[in-house]
Simulated scan of single mutants.
Amino acid sequence: MPELALLTEQLLAPVPGGTGRYTRELAAALAATAPPGWRVTGVVANHRDTSAARVDGVGGPRALRLPRRALTLAWEYGLPLWPGGDVVHAPTPLAPAAARRGAALVVTVHDTVPFTHPETLTPRGAAWHRAVIRRAAQRADALVVPTDTVAAELAEHAPGPARVHVVGHGVPAVLRTPPPEAVVAAVVAEHRLPPAYVLAVGTVEPRKGLDVLVEAMAGPSAPDLPLVVVGPTGWGGVDLRALAAQHGLPPGRLRVLGPLTDEQLAVVLHRATVLAAPSRAEGFGLPVLEAMAVGVPVVHSDAPALVEVAGGAGVAALREDVADLARALSSVVDSPERAAELVERGRARAAAFTWEHAAESVWRLHSRLLSEKAGT
């Protein structure tokens, strides 16, 4: 029975972020759509508690002998530590240096930010990602990327013989489905959610452009609504409350909720007036797709990947342009007709992206690679 070994280590990271969501959703979808005879096993570094890396339908997780830091260094220096499996899929660039003989290695590269916007990452993080992405392009059997934008940028910054396959993301069922009334009431009460608000979802770090959003919301041309921010705190010391005070956004108009469960996020997302995605750079932009799927109009930056994912169903604003972002938000909030049009177009656009479709595309890739290996 062939085994797909899926590296689910990102689920145990201090801040799993968007790549953590990708890892969990893709893993569950791969398990649900596995071809006959295949098994899917999660693989992680050595941790005291690996329960956060358990995924329904996925075996394991199987823990390797090395802890995360040691495993990262071992693979970084090219040590031949194979995590098992006939095919290994690394949902992040944390991956073996090369495939074991007769096996295949596939690596997902989410974006080219380490090359195009290294200032939005830590210097060490940017350097590490550039190195491992370039290595994967040279030594992996295939790369999976979420958009044509990333594929084109990867060809420029990290060319290599690895075949590149574009596979989009999806929207989890828990977010698509309207939450039960009891859950809505509990989340609204706990977080004191206002009846209408601008929503931003993402890790609070420089790349996400939340500093620009706070300044835009403080301006006279912005919608007179609260700003609600959902997501963990990342690196970079982005203090949204301090920025609000600096730009004159009253404390009552900023709600920083921190990380939420998917069930809680579903409530906050469904009740939003508009989603703002002001990122400086992205590889895909899951919140854009998730908002469109539940019928929330979207304003996004002109980062190429966000423009590609939105497909004309959102309103684009110039990156780092405070006035243009405020204008774009107001154009949606102040026009129910335009908002309704965006909702309709957004739902249609989001319907083309599902985790099941993503998993089926990935399975075709894995099956083909294993057949090719068997024939050599």
Rank of each mutant, 00 (worst) to 15 (best):
A374Y: 11
L227Q: 04
E181S: 15
A98C: 05
G20D: 04
V214D: 02
E344A: 15
V267I: 13
L260Q: 12
L243W: 13
G375Y: 14
F284N: 06
G285I: 02
P93F: 02
A70S: 00
H270L: 12
L225P: 05
S330N: 14
P14T: 04
M217N: 01
A245L: 13
P83D: 03
W82G: 03
R139W: 09
H366P: 08
V109W: 06
P336D: 00
P172N: 03
A52W: 00
L175K: 13
P35K: 01
L265R: 03
V268E: 02
V298F: 06
L365K: 03
S371K: 14
L269F: 09
A216C: 08
G234N: 11
V307N: 00
H117F: 08
G125Y: 11
L81F: 09
R349V: 08
A216Q: 00
P96M: 10
R255N: 09
P91R: 04
R255A: 15
E76N: 14
A32R: 11
E341Y: 13
P232K: 14
V298Q: 08
A34T: 09
L318Y: 13
E119H: 15
R135A: 12
A339Y: 09
A276Y: 00
M1Y: 02
P287Y: 00
V44S: 11
V267P: 08
L254M: 12
D86I: 00
G102M: 05
D302W: 04
E119G: 07
S301C: 03
V198Y: 07
P180W: 06
H47K: 00
V362S: 06
P114S: 12
V145N: 01
E341Q: 15
W75R: 06
L175F: 12
P16E: 06
A103H: 01
P146Y: 03
M1V: 09
R280E: 04
K373Q: 15
W75L: 02
P96W: 03
A152R: 15
R255D: 12
F115W: 12
A272M: 07
V183G: 10
L306F: 10
S371I: 10
L243P: 01
